[in-house]
Design a protein around this nucleic acid. Structure first.
Ligand SMILES: [Mn+2]
Ligand SMILES: [Mn+2]
Ligand SMILES: [Zn+2]
Ligand SMILES: [Zn+2]
Lengths: 150, 150
DNA sequence: CCACTAATGCAACAGTGTTGCATTTGCCGG
DNA sequence: CCGGCAAATGCAACACTGTTGCATTAGTGG
């Protein structure tokens, strides 16, 4: 049974990287794969701890920073700071789906949790203002961090 | 001409600190003075570089961190992370008012506009999660920037 | 003024991110 | 398929931000 059409999700990371006009390296493919598979933005430390896939050597710490920067530079990844001040990266395009629900950002561990609720309708804007994005973020302690703090 | 009433701005930092139930020390007074005089949130590095007021010795780096933490803990200061991942501190009164309404952040000029609307009630959280803050930010183009872009 | 506790100063450390440079590797033209 | 070049990597060293432990000092209540 053939698929009707190839969606963005089906595209191989290596092809995305090639199309972006930069060299296709093992590091970039592995990192972009990880970002695209992740359900939340990942920090550098979390990616460094990734299972080193089938006999592959772990990626060097500095190289990982540079790989992430290169993915951001060519538009394949997004970089944002979490509540602890640590940078987190996500695959570009993951934003579309996350625009449809609310997020909880843990001030303890920096984690981002996708909630079921959808963002409330925006209030009326002053004349001439153009709305591009609605961000409804809740901040606090996640269950894990709250248990530690109590 | 006497003032009708002493406003929060007139209160000495030392009195605020005493009222908060912690010891009044030179460091706390100097730091809270600086935060209250600042027009934008200050980073630790910026405060360390503060003019060391009239022959006073500079505050120790670690002590400054602890002074800031104590001011946050007793509710006199607020701590937030900036886009570079560095923590910035502000006097509590400066932001308390902004918790009660929604903000519009212009992606064109970076301006922040306070809207009349108050933030919607937060959705139900997963078990164990503790809510500390609700942030309902609208992003887009303000009237001025929208006119330029059209 | 005393005593008790909280706060300070200093040293050492941890986590995050960057820079320089020699070596390796992806990629392209032949 | 090969050779060469630029880009990417690995490693060491570094910078900046923030934390912890501990001995000493200083604010406060009596
Ligand atoms: Mn989400
Ligand atoms: Mn406001
Ligand atoms: Zn957490
Ligand atoms: Zn604007």
């Amino acid at each position: 049974m053939a698929r009707a059409s190839a969606t963005a999700e089906d595209t191989l990371s290596s092809e995305l990287i090639r199309a972006a006009g930069v060299k296709v390296t093992r590091g970039r493919v592995r990192v972009l794969d990880a970002l695209r598979a992740a359900r939340q933005p990942l920090s550098h430390a979390e990616m460094e701890a990734l299972p080193a896939g089938a006999g592959d050597a772990a990626i060097d710490r500095v190289t990982l920073y540079r790989v992430l920067d290169s993915l951001v530079a060519c538009g394949l990844a997004l970089k944002a700071v979490d509540t602890r001040g640590v940078f987190r990266f996500s695959a570009a395009g993951a934003q579309r789906q996350h625009a449809k629900h609310v997020h909880f950002r843990c001030t303890g561990c920096g984690g981002v949790f996708c909630l079921k609720a959808e963002p409330p309708p925006p209030p009326r804007l002053p004349r001439g203002f153009r709305l591009q994005q609605v961000e409804f973020d809740l901040r606090g302690l996640c269950a894990g961090c709250g248990a530690l703090a109590s």
